[in-house]
Structures are given as C-alpha cells and as structure tokens.
Design a protein around this nucleic acid. Sequence first.
DNA 1: TGTACATCAGTGAACGCGCGTTCACTGATGTAC
DNA 2: TGTACATCAGTGAACGCGCGTTCACTGATGTAC
Lengths: 228, 228
Amino acid sequence: MNNSGRRWQRRSYHHGNLKEVLLEAARKLIQEHGAFGFSLTEAARLAGVSPAAPYRHFRDRDALLAEIARSGFERFAARLDAAWNNGIPTPLSAFEALGRAYLTFAREEPASYAVMFETGASAESGGEAIQAAASSPAAEKAFNVLQQAAAALCRQLPETERPPLKLVALHIWTMSHGVASLFIQEGSAAKKVPLSPEEVLESEMLIYLKGLGVLPEATDGVVSTEQA
Amino acid sequence: MNNSGRRWQRRSYHHGNLKEVLLEAARKLIQEHGAFGFSLTEAARLAGVSPAAPYRHFRDRDALLAEIARSGFERFAARLDAAWNNGIPTPLSAFEALGRAYLTFAREEPASYAVMFETGASAESGGEAIQAAASSPAAEKAFNVLQQAAAALCRQLPETERPPLKLVALHIWTMSHGVASLFIQEGSAAKKVPLSPEEVLESEMLIYLKGLGVLPEATDGVVSTEQA
DNA sequence: TGTACATCAGTGAACGCGCGTTCACTGATGTAC
DNA sequence: TGTACATCAGTGAACGCGCGTTCACTGATGTAC
C-alpha cells in the first residue's frame, strides 16, 4: 500500500481493498435484495470493477458467501465476548449486556446474521461452504460466550438445582435468536408490535432467570410493571 | 371432476389438480434447494406440465410463494389451535401440546415454515405479496392461539403479578421460533446437540413458566433431572 | 539510482444456461337447446 | 340423447435477460542486481 494520501479512490488498476469492498457490497445487496437474491456480478458492479474481478479473491460465489458467514461469526463472537466482559461487574448486568449485544449485532449486520443463521432452508445443497463456516472456530467461540454466561449464572445455584450448562446456553441462544429473527429482520412478521426487541428479550430473560432461581425476589416488580 | 375412477394420473389435458400439485412441488424444491432457490419452471417440470401451465393458476412466481405462505399459515393456525384445544384438560398440559405442535409443523413443513418466517432477509423487495401473507387473517389467527394460551396461563396469577398478555405471547413465540429455526431446519448451526428440539423447548418453557409463577413447586425436579 | 523482470490484480469479451414470462394455439369439458 | 359452442386448462415455441464463470490479455507493483 502506498502512503501518498488516502485518496486511492478510483485508481485504475490495483484497487488495493477489493476483497473487503466486495464483501461490503455483497452485505449491502443481501440486506436489500434478500439473503440469496444477491449476485456476484451485481456486487462487482457496486464495487466498480468488472464481473471477473471477484475471482481474484474468491473461488466462486459460494466462497464469498462463506467468507461473509465466517467473518460475521468472528465479529459476532468478539461483540458478545466484549459485552459479557467476564461477568463484570455482576453476572446479571453482564448478562443483560450480552443480550443487548446479540440484538445489536443482528440489527447492524442483518445480512451477516441472515447468512450465518438462515442458511438451513436457504441453501441446503450448494451451500456446503457456508455450512462449514457455521461450524468454524469463530462460530464455536460465539457459542462459548453464551456457555460461559450460562455457567456463571448457574454457579449461583445450589448444585442440586443446576440444570445442564449446555441446556441453559441453548435456552439463552434460542431466546435471543427468536427475538432477533422475528423482530429485527425488516418486514418480518411482527412489525406492528409497539415494543422494541430489546424490551421483549430483556423481559423474557428476566422471567426465565427468575424461573432458574438466580434472581433475588426484588425483580418481581421489574417484570410486571412494564406496561398495563 | 369425473367419477370414472381416481386414475387420472397422466391424463393429457386438464390435470384437475394442478394448483395443489404445483404448490407441493414448490414446497419440495424449497425444502431441497433453499427458500428462494426454487424456480417456477422447475416446479412445473416436477409437476409434469409445461413451464407456461403455472400461469393459469398463479399470476407470477411471487404469487405462488405467497400462496405457500398463506396456506401455510392456515394449516399452522389449525394445528396450533387443535393442540391448544382450549386449554383442555389443563392449561399446562395444553401448553406443552402447543409447543410440540409448533415444532411438529416446522419439521413437517420446513418449506412452508421458511417462507412464512424467513421472508424478512430473503425477499425484502420483490416479496410484497409474501409480506401481505404474513399479515393475513390466517397468520393473525395463529398468533391469537398463542395469545389465548398466554391468557389462560396468566389467569392463574394474581392480577398484580400479571405481565401484559401480548408480551407473554411474544415470549412464547420467540422461544418456539428460536428452537424451530435453530434446530429443525436442516444443516442448521446446531446439529451436534444431542437433545431433541422438543426437549430443549420443553425445558425452556418449564423454567420460563416457573419464573412467571404458574408452576407448582413440584416441577423443580423436572427441570433439573434431565441430565447430569 | 536505474533497469529487467516476475508477479499480481485487474480488464473486457465471450460462453452457455436456465429463468420468468408471453403468445397464439388446441384439446377437453360442460352447458344450452 | 345428440349437437353447437363457450370456456377452461393445458401446450410448445420463443423472447430477452442477467447470471456465473472462463480466457487471453494488460497495466501496475515490487524486487534483484
């Protein structure tokens, strides 16, 4: 990379940044036209290069999608990890931050989120590369953060009342994903609801935590004074 | 329709059943090739008719997708309603049946489920017809069943501790959808988990209900003896 | 500091393909008399 | 019961399009000497 100023905008050859720009273009297109209604050609057009250019950086269309998933999982894991922050200052407050971070990621990167999690019914065949990304180390790391949080919460319980950690982590995950999937993706089924996704998820988790037994009694009020 | 036997297999003209057969073919293709990786032409081929034939029954590709969503919501609502069965014999047992019915539908009709709920990021533009289906009377009816269940459960609480019904219904919905979306769609992120979707959802809902305060104390055991 | 050259990252034209959709058509069905 | 006819539900050929991908190419960059 040269140091003659940051104005390499529209330099002819050697874009310098193409790979990242293509990923960004693809995410934008996916956000607008749907998880699999995007085309490599159009992404190239948006990036201002010829339709053949992407092949210098990705083996094929699928590889680009897989990279969106992979890098998405990486940022996702980093976000969750930062929000959880090892359960500091308290497991409960960190847990709330974790839930909000989950929703924030889904809102800020809906395209990444869709490729990461709506892959099942959207590209069963043909999408082997994406499947691989879904079981990548980064994806694993993201789930591990949830599991750490579950562990910290359960540690507050007497051993005889502890459900399996993995199960609790899955519960947290399904609640978060359920809210993100139903309420954040544009045009989703639940547009008319007057509550923010955050409000729904937080109240849901409070009730769940109370059921787990990790909330002091004082929280009754929080749950039931939300609305008439 | 003629009564000369039910063997109208491969009659030349006048298929008689084409609309339904096309929908079925489309569902099969969606299940195999992804929610929006299906083509009208291929569905026609699968149904054994020319690529122009579908246009006698659907204005365009989008209209067929919308009909999958609409009729999907109808069967979905019917299933949930039957399972809930007005809370008989007890709200709690009916509630469990409701959750199982939700997962059963998602498993038996993954294509319908995907079109109904994964529409957000998959066809924002272009999918107006599907969006319309998502706010159809049938979709409304499905959500109403969840709301009825929420109402029946909350009725067991003293009025001062009742959270808003709509909120509880949304909690139920996000839990169910979260499990269905993450665990049932083939090739989804959570294949390696040794638990069935039903086990995950049921345990999750038990904890949630306990947090709500509608479970008698006896259920502690149910939650924590599932696994070591 | 200057030149030769390998490598890298683009171009642009071309391909074959399957798709959505249209069109004029035609065979089968059902109804009126 | 038989014939005439409107309507319905298909056909099959054709179209224009955008896509994914390939290919031989070329301009820019970085390195060896």
